[in-house]
Simulated scan of single mutants.
Amino acid sequence: MKKIIMILLVLISQACQSNAAPASAAGVFTYMQIFFTPNVLPDSAFITFTPTFQKQREIKLNGMPKNFADLGFSEMLMVQAKRNQEMRDTLIKTINTVTADGWEVVQMTSYGEGGLVYLLRHAK
C-alpha cells in the first residue's frame, strides 16, 4: 500500500511540474522527493529518495535487538524511544545534507500515520 501511495505522489509531483509556472531566471529545476516513514519493520527503509540522491535510494535503520522479545515492557519502550529518536536525528541529518548540496525544500506534507514527504528542487 505504501508503495502505491509513493508512486501516486511521484506521478502527482510530475504532473505539477509540467503545470508549474516558468522557472526563475536561474533556469529549469530538477525535483526530488524524500519520503519519511516512521512506522516500518526493522531492517526496512524509513527514508526513501525519488530519484536517488548521491547514488542512494533509501536509508534503513538497524533491526531491533535480538533479545527484544525477551525484554520487559519498560525496556521495550526505552528501545523503541531510542529507535524513534535515531530516526528523527537521521531525517534531520538527511535534510541538512541535501540542502547543503544545493537542494531547496519547496514543500513538506504528511501522509499515512506519521509519514512525511519533502519536495525539493535544485537549479539545473
Results as ranks from 00 to 15, higher is better:
Lys82Pro: 01
Leu120Ile: 01
Leu91Ile: 02
Gln33Asp: 00
Ile59Phe: 03
Val98Gly: 02
Glu113Tyr: 13
Leu120Ala: 10
Ala25Cys: 06
Met32Asp: 01
Val117Tyr: 00
Ser44Leu: 00
Leu9His: 06
Gly27His: 06
Gly114Tyr: 04
Ala81Leu: 07
Leu11Ile: 09
Ile59His: 02
Pro65His: 09
Lys66Cys: 08
Lys3Arg: 14
Val40Asn: 04
Lys82Leu: 09
Lys66His: 08
Leu119Ala: 12
Leu8Ala: 13
Gln56Thr: 15
Thr109Phe: 10
Phe46Gly: 00
Met87Gln: 15
Leu61Asp: 01
Phe29Met: 09
Thr109Trp: 10
Ser24Asp: 13
Met87Tyr: 03
Met6Asn: 05
Leu116Phe: 02
Ile4Val: 08
Ile12Gly: 03
Asp70Asn: 15
Gln80Ile: 13
Val28Arg: 15
Phe73Asp: 12
Ser13Trp: 02
Met1Thr: 13
Met1Ser: 15
Met6Arg: 05
Gly102Val: 01
Phe68Leu: 03
Ala69Cys: 09
Ile92Ser: 10
Val106Phe: 02
Ser24Val: 03
Lys93Met: 05
Met1Trp: 08
Phe35Lys: 03
Gln85Ser: 12
Leu71Met: 14
Ser18Val: 15
Thr109His: 08
Thr52Gln: 10
Lys66Trp: 05
Phe73Gln: 11
Phe53Trp: 12
Pro42Thr: 03
Gly63Lys: 08
Leu91Pro: 00
Phe36Arg: 04
Thr97His: 06
Ile7Arg: 10
Phe49Glu: 02
Ser24Tyr: 06
Ser74Trp: 11
Phe68Ile: 02
Asn39Thr: 14
Pro42His: 05
Asp89Phe: 09
Lys93Ser: 14
Leu119Glu: 08
Ala25Val: 10
Gln54Thr: 06
Phe49Pro: 01
Val40Asp: 02
Ala26Glu: 12
Val105Trp: 03
His122Ser: 00
Gln107Arg: 11
Val106Tyr: 06
Ala23Arg: 12
Ile92Leu: 11
Leu71Gly: 05
His122Leu: 05
Val117Cys: 08
Ser18Asn: 11
Ala123Arg: 11
Ile5Tyr: 07
Met32Arg: 05
Thr48Glu: 05
Val28Ala: 14
Glu86Ile: 11
Arg121Phe: 00
Phe49Leu: 02
Ala100Asn: 08
Arg57Leu: 13
Leu71Phe: 07
Pro38Tyr: 01
Lys66Gln: 11
Arg121Ser: 04
Ser18Gly: 07
Phe35Thr: 01
Cys16Ser: 14
Arg83Cys: 01
Lys124Tyr: 07
Gln54Gly: 00
Val106Arg: 07
Asn67Thr: 07
Pro51Met: 00
Thr37Leu: 08
Leu8Trp: 14
Asn19His: 10
Leu120Phe: 04
Glu75Pro: 05
Leu9Asn: 06
Leu116Gly: 00
Met1Lys: 13
Lys3Cys: 06
Val28Gly: 10
Gly72Arg: 09
Leu119Pro: 02
Leu119Gly: 05
Leu71Gln: 08
Asn96His: 12
Tyr118Met: 02
Ser110His: 14
Ala123Asn: 14
Thr52Glu: 11
Phe29Gln: 12
Gly112Arg: 01
Pro38Val: 03
Ala123Gln: 13
Asn67Gln: 07
Thr52Ile: 05
Ile47His: 01
Ala26His: 09
Gly115Pro: 04
Ile7Cys: 04
Tyr118Leu: 01
Phe73Met: 12
Lys2Asn: 11
Pro65Val: 07
Met78His: 11
Gln85Tyr: 07
Ala123His: 14
Met1Tyr: 09
Val40His: 05
Asn39Arg: 15
Met64Glu: 06
Pro51Ile: 00
Ala81Arg: 10
